[in-house]
Design a protein around this nucleic acid. Structure first.
Lengths: 240, 240
DNA sequence: ATTCATATTATGTAGCTACTTATTTTGTCA
DNA sequence: TGACAAAATAAGTAGCTACATAATATGAAT
């Protein structure tokens, strides 16, 4: 609601959302056209448009030209997660950040890694294994491949001091990022490095980034037992 | 780009994004004001505004009134996941969906559950344990609490036929949803129901929903070994 | 009845103006 | 110098118009 009593687009959005939540509009139902809603509520169509766009982005309604707007018949839970640089993540959780380089080598990528990076043939890349620590205890173990074609400067970085994670995030912003979450049992080596029992359930984050179509890096990050990931609480959402 | 040669807001966004990716604007740098960019590119300020809003939503830039726009100094990976109704998820993966009700009882919530649901004191709620199957094999085991205060009709639903998941999604849209991902070792009971070895690493999704401030349901869904969650590939993203 | 061109319709996009609001900068006064 | 008020600034919002685009509906011709 604005100062002069007119409805803001958020107010319009919340109003429509409320009608959906209350069952006035059920999943699959068609909503009135933007222009009619605008008339009813006494605001401009552009305001309704913005409200509807937001509801559409949130997965609550579907919009199609000429077809109009309807309540999504198969609601989905849309969750957004923010994965910060590991150092920040540790610090945000109140820990003192530590870092150890375990291995650094130039190797030919296995076929699976080449496929993940969407390159035709295996390539020689920089492989880095490192451990992130929180208050001196293992927090996350990363096994990373970095394309030396896309980021040659990484070869001159002293990775025993600065983590590849941190360097890349600042120096190689990506245009595309694929993320995969899974659970995996700790192997012998992982268990030892993460300081847990072999077979422990680990939360694993696989991430691959590209700039344009050129691969930058792919990393498998195995987190120490107990790790969990929460949805970022949206600033607005939660209408009604 | 529009038909008449003017820049669309997506084109403007991609252009600015490209300049960030190329390092022309580095993390922390301040960008020109919207009006200046509009002049430079020969488009309206509202177009730049829309482009900037999108970059801001994507976590690429930060905007503050008077402060202007700057490239986010601590880039975060922002990943969005869509969690559909379990039946649809199974079907989307090419499986034949099956469902089994394991337990249905009215119970007092433990304190931990009451806390998760953000209610002051424990309450009597409907507890449902059910197994979702894909091609006859266990896919996901859910342990759910449903507020009979918020959704009393659930008591009349034949949960041996229709899953609570499905009923709630259609009949109790939520205004807020918290999601938590974690990895957990399968216990005796879980292992038996999911048909895996005890101690197997399971991917666990905890979800709690509210309508306004009233709790609807909280569910712990343990997925069979091998489950993984991928980012939904955004329709637009991937500029440059 | 089927096909295909045409009209209609509802959303999408761009531009303009005017005003609001949060925040920083500046400048004055104690 | 420090505190506080006033001015300036840059993004945020709302409304208007005009036109683009995609999808559907209609109707004519075969």
């Amino acid at each position: 609601m604005t100062a002069d009593g007119r409805l803001s687009w958020r107010a319009v959005r919340d109003r429509i959302h409320a009608r959906i939540l209350s069952g006035h509009y059920a999943p699959g139902d068609r909503l009135p056209r933007d222009a009619d809603i605008a008339d009813t509520l006494g605001c401009a169509r552009s305001t309704v448009q913005r409200a509807m766009q937001d509801l559409s982005d949130s997965g609550i309604v579907e919009r199609r030209r000429k077809g109009g707007t309807r309540v999504r018949p198969d609601p989905v839970t849309r969750a957004t997660f923010e994965i910060p640089v590991t150092r920040r993540e540790v610090e945000a959780k109140g820990g003192r950040y530590g870092y150890q380089l375990i291995r650094r080598a130039l190797e030919e990528t296995p076929r699976t890694i080449a496929a993940t990076l969407e390159i035709g043939a295996p390539e020689r890349m920089l492989r880095v294994e490192a451990l992130h620590l929180s208050d001196g205890r293992p927090f996350m173990l990363e096994d990373r491949w970095i394309s030396t074609a896309t980021a040659p400067e990484i070869l001159d970085v002293d990775l025993s001091v600065e983590s590849a994670n941190e360097w890349l995030v600042v120096n190689r912003p990506y245009s595309r990022c694929d993320v995969r979450f899974s659970a995996e049992a700790a192997g012998e080596r992982e268990a030892e490095l993460l300081g847990c029992a072999p077979g422990s359930a680990l939360f694993v984050i696989d991430r691959t980034t590209w700039i344009g179509t050129r691969p930058i890096t792919t990393v498998k990050a195995a987190t120490a037992p107990g790790y969990e990931l929460l949805t970022r609480t949206p600033g607005d959402q939660g209408a009604m």
